[in-house]
Design a protein around this nucleic acid. Structure first.
Lengths: 225, 225
DNA sequence: AAAATTGTATGACAAATATCATATTTTGAT
DNA sequence: ATCAAAATATGATATTTGTCATACAATTTT
């Protein structure tokens, strides 16, 4: 059982507000998991009974729509927490969390988190602010879905992926999404996504090398019409 | 200056957790406003410095998109609070709030609310749960925008309007939205919205009498393809 | 290594939706 | 009541996007 005190990613989450005593208690009750790429952490409708702290790897939060397609709502990075909303609302998960890479996560039971919540005001303010950020993000995302074309959304998503997850030494996007997953972020059919990527490739806005994507002209990608 | 203690709508909001003492303090520092239909309560980007409690009337929360169209994110009813997210994140408003009917609202300064926040745990839990509900709603809304057709969104929106705001004695929707506003909820062009309404009218799913709308077959409206 | 499965790509076409033009109706102001 | 402005309606057309079919490539299994 590793010590939460020494865990670096904690510093990036709401958990940074916890004191030594609280960290020791957390280290005792937490469970660590290794999740392989493609495996779920939890599924929509599941009762989670706690939160997950992401130590390593990226996962997608998605929701199955009536038309059978999986819409990706958010990507989550190391240092972020999962399942906060469900825990506070005391409801089953509204979204599924599936690993996009091999991951390491820690599960902290609901009872423990709720204790921190009432004891440590700074911690609960941190959680609250995170949820507020998520709400703003979701509202903005919604407006984009409603008002922008698939083309524009693709351009903006590619830039988001580069800015959030960085590039490899060869300049290609570091995060690896299948075409289907990219389509699921944008909210379009997989074929449309592939077709538009191929078009942006021909226009010289991006470069496709196998499954790798390189952004060549970010200014133009921002202003696609 | 009216007494918050006797205000009925308070019971429907997070403010129901306040005790007598807190209510008296709130009554002293609050400001009441009358807002006419079409007027803003606050605009996107504005620093609000407090929250609004809606006593009477409905308003829209919307955001101006890059394409110049106003996307309606949410409709807000009496008893609900406005500006909670901005207050907690300590940011300017992300959305504009504009009255759809004549309204009565009370403004409570940030300093006062923050005091309740630290003193009254039940109150802060209520606020937190409200924001969590909004987040879930926004995620679901986003998935609908991304995955459903304009037709389906129109059908679902009409049902939402009837279920949330009720009907008049003649069976028409009680809430009055212009075609442009309805289009702004659905995320489509005003002409497309008008055309689809007219089509649903001809198919007998709804009835249009001037600007009044009556839902005739809710089951079919739910399952539009 | 061959076969099977899965992911990517592209063409052909259909359907949905946006845009522009122009009536028509309703509302508000004088 | 009349006029101007705004909202609603509808047609014509262009564009975007989805769907289905099929091909090709890459990966996994046998």
């Amino acid at each position: 059982m590793s010590k939460c005190e020494q865990c670096i990613v904690r510093q990036f989450s709401s958990l940074k507000a916890l004191n030594k005593d609280e960290l020791l208690r957390m280290a005792e009750c937490k469970t660590s998991y290794t999740i392989k790429k493609g495996e779920p952490i939890f599924e929509e409708g599941e009762v989670t009974n706690g939160i997950y702290c992401i130590k390593d790897g990226v996962c997608k939060l998605s929701k199955l729509s009536d038309n059978g397609k999986d819409q990706i709502v958010k990507l989550v990075k190391p240092g972020e927490l999962l399942g906060q909303r469900s825990m506070i609302s005391d409801e089953p998960a509204n979204l599924s969390a599936v690993a996009l890479e091999d991951m390491e996560v820690c599960f902290i039971p609901r009872s423990e988190v709720m204790q921190f919540f009432t004891q440590n005001n700074q911690f609960s303010m941190n959680v609250m602010r995170t949820i507020c950020d998520d709400l703003k993000g979701a509202d903005d995302h919604m407006v984009n879905m409603a008002q922008k074309t698939v083309r524009q959304r693709l351009g903006e998503t590619l830039i988001y992926l580069e800015e959030t997850f960085g590039k490899n030494e060869d300049g290609t996007l570091h995060i690896q999404l299948s075409r289907e997953e990219l389509a699921g972020m944008i909210g379009t059919a997989t074929e449309s996504c592939i077709r538009l990527l191929s078009e942006l490739n021909k226009s010289g806005y991006i470069e496709l090398t196998g499954k790798k994507i390189t952004l060549l002209d970010k200014n133009k990608l921002k202003r696609l019409t």
